[in-house]
């Protein structure tokens, strides 16, 4: 086997490039402030992500710039924003993905704007969870934490985990034209979670119970299958299949 010497991180960043960032700026709490796009420029460094770039801009050029990062590892879902027309997680977006060196950053549409690139996804998700009751409703019966646990089909557990990988980043909400037009629409995030609990054998809710929650224009029948959710989800969740599953399930209650 040939030893490969020094494949470098610098392979991934064309050294010496000067990047231009066009960033949406607006402070809704500042009297008289108007939304505007502001241009910044920054020298690209190898391996630079939007996370690194934004922090450098704030540290070096404008200390008032607002944005949200928490885990900066693509796990927590805090940093979704619209980068050159595509909503995605900023922390794991490399600047090398943009050959022209022009990067436009906009806050996620459809959420309350806190300022600049920061939007209040947390408030939205909590309200959604309360409205749709997005938690496990255990079946009747006492459950002991001291006794041997109930067995569960290993495949079912694996399936549930796959649906549970949603990080509530809000990308599906912002990418959904239906949701933008209809405030009360639950969006892919809500439907995905409903599907997750509907499939959980530990959940005591019946199909009719779920119909009551999502069997309407704000629920699964409001979805027009535009698939912005499917095409932009940073976790590649099976929105298309799950929403279709719920639609069939809810329509079957007619029979």
């Amino acid at each position: 086997m040939t030893t490969r010497l020094i494949p470098t991180v610098t392979d991934t960043g064309s050294a010496g490039r000067r990047l231009t960032f066009n960033i949406f700026r607006f402070d809704p709490q500042e009297n008289g402030d108007k939304p505007k796009m502001v241009s910044y420029s920054l020298d690209e460094t190898p391996g630079m992500t939007i996370f690194i770039a934004l922090n450098r801009l704030r540290d070096e050029q404008d200390s008032s710039l607002q944005f949200d990062f928490v885990c900066r590892a693509g796990i927590c879902g805090s940093c979704a924003m619209v980068i050159n027309g595509l909503p995605t997680l900023a922390c794991r977006t490399l600047t090398t993905r943009y050959p022209k060196g022009e990067i436009t950053l906009m806050p996620l549409p459809g959420f309350e704007l806190i300022g600049d690139l920061s939007v209040n996804t947390g408030k939205f998700m909590r309200q959604l969870a309360e409205r749709l009751q997005l938690w496990l409703h255990p079946r009747e019966g006492e459950q002991s934490i001291h006794a041997l646990e109930q067995a569960m089909d290993p495949d079912e557990a694996a399936r549930l985990y796959e649906l549970e990988r949603c990080v509530e980043c809000g990308v599906c909400v912002s990418a959904c034209a239906t949701k933008q037009m209809r405030d009360t629409f639950v969006g892919a995030v809500g439907l995905m979670k409903i599907a997750r609990f509907e499939l959980d054998s530990r959940d005591g809710r019946s199909v009719e119970d779920f119909y009551h929650v999502i069997g309407n224009q704000d629920g699964v029948f409001g979805c027009m299958t535009l698939l912005g959710c499917q095409d932009n989800c940073p976790k590649d969740l099976p929105h298309m299949q799950q929403i279709a599953y719920l639609r069939r399930k809810m329509a079957m209650t007619l029979l």
Binding site: V82, G85, L86, S174, A175, A177, Q180, L226, G228
Partner: peptide, 20 residues
């Protein structure tokens, strides 16, 4: 609703939404 749709389609580039 028209305004919301316009804003969304303007800021987010998505083929299937344009199809719709």
């Amino acid at each position: 609703q028209h305004a919301a749709l316009r804003t969304q389609m303007h800021s987010i580039d998505h083929g299937d939404t344009r199809l719709w």
